[in-house]
Simulated scan of single mutants.
Amino acid sequence: MSGLTCDHVGLSDTYSSRRYFRKFETIMQHMLHVAGVLRAEGKLDDDEVDILTRYAVKLTHTFRALGFKYLLAGRETGRFFGSLTMDSRDSGFPVAEEIMTMANDAQQAAAHLDGMVSVEALKDQMVQTILGERQIPTKLQFTLSQRLYYEELVKGDLFWMQNDPQSQWLGNLAGGRRQFRLHWATYDSQVNLPVIYLMELEDSGRIGLPKDQRRWPEVQAHLSAQALGGLKLLTIAKGFDEDFDDLHPKRLRRFHVGPMYSHAYTQQAGPLRDVLSEAKAPEGQDWALVWTEEELISDRVIEEKAGWFSTVERQIFALDPFAAANGEDLGATRQERSIILPQRPFQVLEEKKPAGFASVRKFVVSQTGRVLQY
């Protein structure tokens, strides 16, 4: 087996699989609470929180759908259907192939539902099997789980490999310009993590960007193609600035959701693994989620020649001077790393004080939804 294959683990135990999905549903709820804290601090405005919340909801729906798909993992159903494959070393999230397969299933979900018995009829048959035949209706349970899976796919609002750019009008500026915020997201197949992008730009075109039938599809295709975690924000922003003369990117942000660490499920190396091992937290509190935000801001504008008689604006972006002094090339104005974790793992983290965590912001969450920050 290759190293990559060894890092991808199938959750073939029924209860282990179900706990995994419950864990992620809990984590997504805590993410929303943390977003509320950032809004209260003024680091996110209401619209930005709404955008991030929508992507968190999409992730929640995605995990719910996969939870139904693999609800009977490890049980004898009379049909082999596999188990969820997760990246146990690098991300703690499902591998990208799971999202790709789900997208393919979604295209055929309606047809599958047309040929399946209703939920109510399946439940009636299950009761008859239990009472009349005194057997566990495993096969019927499997059929029901698959029906619920396809129903979730038909509902939509899921997090796909590529979530196309959408626009939000922010206002009109002097000189006839318009200001927009674009947002899009991807499930990065290189690291098996969701990544969310937000860009604020000025539009000096004659037609507003979302209504421009020529530019808007080109912008969507361009940004989707550049949504790679390995690309620096500076590379993405400069490429966009140079390809669209009448669109002027002023601020670009990228949010990396994950990795997720769990002593029960992941094998990442490093201090967090030791922290979770020593914490011995109860079920549902044995985890930590890393959250990284990168930001690139336009510092000033210069004029460049475009042909013989015209000029175009070009953005000069501000880069983190401290990163350059330390020999790092972030390609961003700033980068902030945060970690979201329950109380007991946080206590162990504070006691051990591992190197590299002093500058990491900690959000400590409770089962009641309360968030403390350190």
Rank of each mutant, 00 (worst) to 15 (best):
L330W: 14
N192Y: 05
L158C: 08
A288Q: 07
E313G: 07
E48Y: 05
E120V: 14
K139A: 09
L252K: 00
V312S: 09
E313C: 02
L4F: 12
L247C: 01
A279S: 10
V191D: 08
G92N: 03
L289V: 07
T26Q: 13
A109F: 06
K58N: 08
K58C: 06
R206P: 04
E293A: 11
K280C: 05
G92S: 02
Q141P: 03
V365K: 10
S145N: 08
A56L: 10
E350C: 05
V9R: 03
Q108W: 04
Q141I: 00
Q146Y: 09
N104A: 12
D105E: 11
A40M: 10
D105I: 01
P217V: 14
P345Q: 03
T77F: 06
K232A: 01
F93E: 00
L52W: 09
W291F: 12
D114K: 15
P217I: 13
P94H: 04
Q213H: 08
D105A: 03
W160F: 07
E293H: 11
P217E: 07
I340M: 15
I196D: 07
K305E: 04
P249Q: 00
R314Q: 14
W184A: 04
R177E: 14
I207H: 13
I316A: 07
L11H: 15
W160P: 01
D157T: 06
G331D: 09
H8P: 01
A281M: 04
W287K: 03
F309V: 11
M161I: 10
K232N: 05
E120G: 00
S338W: 06
A40E: 14
L11D: 11
T101G: 04
F21Q: 04
G156Q: 10
D243W: 08
V219S: 10
Y261K: 13
S224T: 15
L209N: 12
R370N: 10
N172K: 08
S167Y: 03
G307Q: 06
G239M: 03
T368F: 02
A174C: 02
Q373V: 15
L201R: 02
Y70K: 03
V191T: 14
F180C: 03
N326P: 01
D188P: 04
L247E: 03
Q141R: 00
Q367V: 01
V191Q: 06
P194F: 11
R206N: 08
L234K: 15
V257S: 05
A306Y: 11
R18P: 01
Q285K: 03
G92K: 05
F357N: 14
A358G: 08
L234H: 15
E120I: 09
K232P: 06
S2L: 11
G10Y: 09
I51R: 02
P259R: 13
F240N: 07
T14Q: 12
G208M: 05
I99P: 02
P342V: 07
P282Q: 04
W169T: 15
Y149I: 01
T333R: 06
P249D: 02
S277N: 08
L59P: 02
G230R: 12
L122H: 05
L11Q: 07
S366V: 00
G331T: 11
T368Y: 04
T85P: 00
L144I: 05
D46W: 07
G67T: 07
G10M: 10
Q367M: 00
R134Y: 09
